[in-house]
Every structure is written in structure tokens, then in C-alpha cells.
Design a protein around this nucleic acid. Structure first.
Lengths: 225, 225
DNA sequence: CGATTGGTTATTGTCTACAGTTTACCCATA
DNA sequence: TATGGGTAAACTGTAGACAATAACCAATCG
């Protein structure tokens, strides 16, 4: 046995490149979310392949996945187009997001132990510090971490998977908006922690619902920037 | 113009083959859901390709999609394996299903008009007839139609998409169970229609939640067949 | 002058071939 | 007999080539 001498976490996990399609997928997702590839734009496989220095095959596979996840529309015999978000769809996504996050909050209140609450508090502190320091990117990142942690405490992998997808797309739609409401958001997070800590499922659900609904209203009022 | 002489609906819409990957995808999904391909089984691309009379490429693309939707696990450099459902995962899926269906019921109660209620009643009659005639397959189909209709009335495409995926996987897990509870199910459907008709969001939610939770309990008690 | 038809080009859909990895088996050896 | 290495087979990952299809544009006919 070689158990001895291999301190559990210290294994370097030697960086394997992994399947190309994965990296292409992430690259394209990055390009889409950063608006480098604009909505409605026609994505030509050979161009992307050449630009990324790979063959068409991995690009195709990445596009297929992006299609099933709603990032691109794959018209048969015509190619891939970056999905064009409509007002209606954004609203529907926000509705679903509210639903999933609220349920996650409920489950977190039900099954989340003291250690989970502690982790949430740490993340909350981190986010509040970022807000005070005017570190917008840091605050956004902390926010994502916070929600991810709540989802983790919920202990429902299926729910987490769906929420992750919906969240990313929501973020795509209203990225510019997200930066506005920084401080208020963390106050609400505090309330959520309190509810989870008290194992008050009902209150956790309501707080989270109010929280995400709040961002939804912010979205709809963004016109008059 | 040749509009004249081409009676609008009479055009046979000649069957376009469509992308091969689509047909391969559907074929594989059929094979999986019917248990022809057993959970845990190693799917060899070349075998499937030969068996379906196509090359490996469409098979690969179909497998990728099945992977993102949770039907197969795609281990790098090793291939595709039919996903093995665990007890825990089935439970999580049922939880999420309850959540999504309940929300759909609420939205249906909110936005669904009288015409929608009428359509639901028709489907309900259809299902009840099937039950009385001991037409199990017919009852199951009508049940699916009923839920799909509720989802349609909800008018949220994103929600519908997620629910469709979750529903199919749920059905995969507890297909044998579903056949049992026929009659009771349609009584509950009647209650749901009443709630939607009254535009009582709260009651519609509760009824649907009770309904799906009921099937969940049936699932967990299936051992002692 | 407009509509339609035919050709042209660019892009996707599919197939075949090759390289890289993993797995399993077999044999040699302590 | 158990262990270790080494080899071989099978499969996946990637690349490149070919065929098919759809959009685009010009030329022709009414």
C-alpha cells in the first residue's frame, strides 16, 4: 500500500489537458458571455476552428453542447447562431431562477448544519468587504460563491445543475445591471443566513424569493440607466 | 403565384430526413428508456454505428447530447456508459419535478383562460376513459398530455424545457410504478382543473404538489411490489 | 420591369483514416 | 504463488477529405 506518504490533498493532480471539446466549449462560452461574439452572429465552424488552432470536430461538439444549453441556436444545414435573448425569455429565466433558488434556500434551512452557516457567514464577510472596497468584480464573484454555497448546502445535485445553467444565462442577460445593487444585496444575504441558521424553511424561502425578485425588478427598470 | 391549387394543409410535408444525429439521438434514447441498453453498460461508438448503419460521427454527437442531459456518463478517453440511477438521485429528481410542476400549475391558474380549462377537461375525460377501459398505455399517454398541457398554459418556455427533461428521466426511473396508480391520479387532476378554473394560484400549487408528492411516495414504497 | 430559373460559392453533414491512451492479458521472476 | 513489467488489442480523440445542401447572384423570359 502506498497510502502512507501521499497526504490526501497534496497530490498535484497533474494537469491533464482533457478533451479538446471541453476547452473549446469553455472558450466559446467565454466569448459569448463577454459579448465578443454578439447575439445573432453567425458562427462558422471553420473560422472558429482556425482561430482556436484546432480542427472543426471539437468545435462542432462544443457547438452542439452550447445548443442544448441554450447559448446558440443550431439551424440545420445552416450553422450556429448566437442566441438572441428576448425580453420575454429573460423574464422567464428570472422566474425560474427565483423558483430554484428559493427551493435551494428551503432545503439549506432544512439540512444545512452549523458548519454550513459558518461558511456562509465567511462568504458574506468577504462580499461585504469587497463592497466597501468598491471592488465590483470581487463583489460579483463573492455573490456567485454565496449562492453556490447555499445550493451546496441544499444537497440536491439535480437542482444544483439546473440552477447553475439558469444562473449563468441570467447573468449573461443582466450583467450590466448586477453591478448596481451591491450593498442592499448583502443585507438580504444576512437575513437569509439567519433564517437558515434558525432552520426556518418558510422564512428562508421567502427571503430568497424576495431577494431574487428584487434583482428581477432591477432588471426591468434598467432602461432608464 | 401558385398558391391556387395547393390546398394549404394538404401538402404531405414530405418527410425530410433531417440531421442524422437527431435520429441517432432519438434511437439511442429509445433504446435506453426501454432498457434495451442497460444502466452501466459500456456503449462502444463503433458498435452502435455499425448497428445503426451510420458512421461514428453522428453517434458521437448524439452521445454528447445524451451526456449533457444526464442519460449517459461520458468518461474521458474511456467512452460512454449508460447512467446508473441511484436511489438518492431519483429522489432529487422527484423533488425538482414537484417544484417545477407546482409552479407550472400556479402559472396556469394565473394566466390560463377558459379555453385552456376546456382543453384540460377534454384530456381528463380521455384519461378517465382509458382507465375505465383498462388501457394502461393510453392512460399513461393521456397523463403525459395532461401535464404537458398544464405546462403549456403556464406559458413559460424555459420552465417547460426543464420540466420536460426532468419528467422524461423521472419516467425512466419509475415506469413500472406509474402503472399502479391510475384512478386516484385522475381524481386529483379534476381538483387541479377546478383550482385553475377558479384562478386560485395557491390551491393549484398545493394540489399539484400533493399530486406529484403522491407519486413520489408511491415510488419509495415500490419495493414490496 | 419583375419574376423565375439556373449556376456558383460558401458552409454544413458525413465518412475515412490516423494518432494517443487506456485496459487487459501474459509471461518472467522473486 | 504473487508481483512486476511489458506487450498487444481495443477504443477514443482528432484531423482531414468528400458529398450534399442552402443561400446568393446574375441572366433570361414573360
Amino acid at each position: 500500500m502506498l497510502s502512507r506518504g501521499l497526504p490526501q490533498g497534496a497530490v498535484p493532480k497533474l494537469e491533464r489537458p482533457g478533451p479538446l471539446r471541453e476547452r473549446v466549449y469553455e472558450a466559446l462560452l467565454e466569448l459569448i458571455t463577454t459579448r465578443a461574439l454578439r447575439p445573432g452572429q453567425h458562427l462558422v465552424e471553420s473560422e472558429l476552428a482556425g482561430h482556436l488552432g484546432v480542427s472543426r470536430q471539437p468545435v462542432r461538439e462544443a457547438l452542439q453542447r452550447l445548443n442544448t444549453e441554450g447559448w446558440v441556436d443550431l439551424r440545420p444545414a445552416q450553422g450556429a447562431f448566437v442566441h438572441e435573448p428576448t425580453e420575454e425569455e429573460a423574464d422567464q429565466l428570472l422566474t425560474v431562477r427565483t423558483l430554484l433558488e428559493a427551493e435551494a434556500a428551503r432545503l439549506a434551512a432544512a439540512h444545512g448544519g452549523p458548519s454550513g452557516v459558518e461558511a456562509l457567514e465567511e462568504l458574506c464577510v468577504k462580499g461585504e468587504r469587497a463592497v466597501l472596497a468598491d471592488d465590483v468584480d470581487g463583489a460579483v464573484a463573492a455573490n456567485a460563491e454565496f449562492h453556490a454555497k447555499v445550493m451546496e448546502l441544499a444537497g440536491n445535485a439535480v437542482l444544483a445543475e439546473l440552477a447553475a445553467q439558469v444562473d449563468r444565462r441570467v447573468r449573461w442577460y443582466y450583467t450590466p445591471v448586477a453591478r448596481q445593487r451591491g450593498k442592499q444585496s448583502w443585507i438580504e444575504h444576512r437575513e437569509l443566513i439567519a433564517a437558515i441558521s434558525a432552520q426556518d424553511e418558510r422564512r428562508a424561502t421567502d427571503v430568497m424569493r424576495a431577494h431574487t425578485e428584487h434583482t428581477r425588478r432591477t432588471y426591468h427598470e434598467r432602461e432608464r440607466g
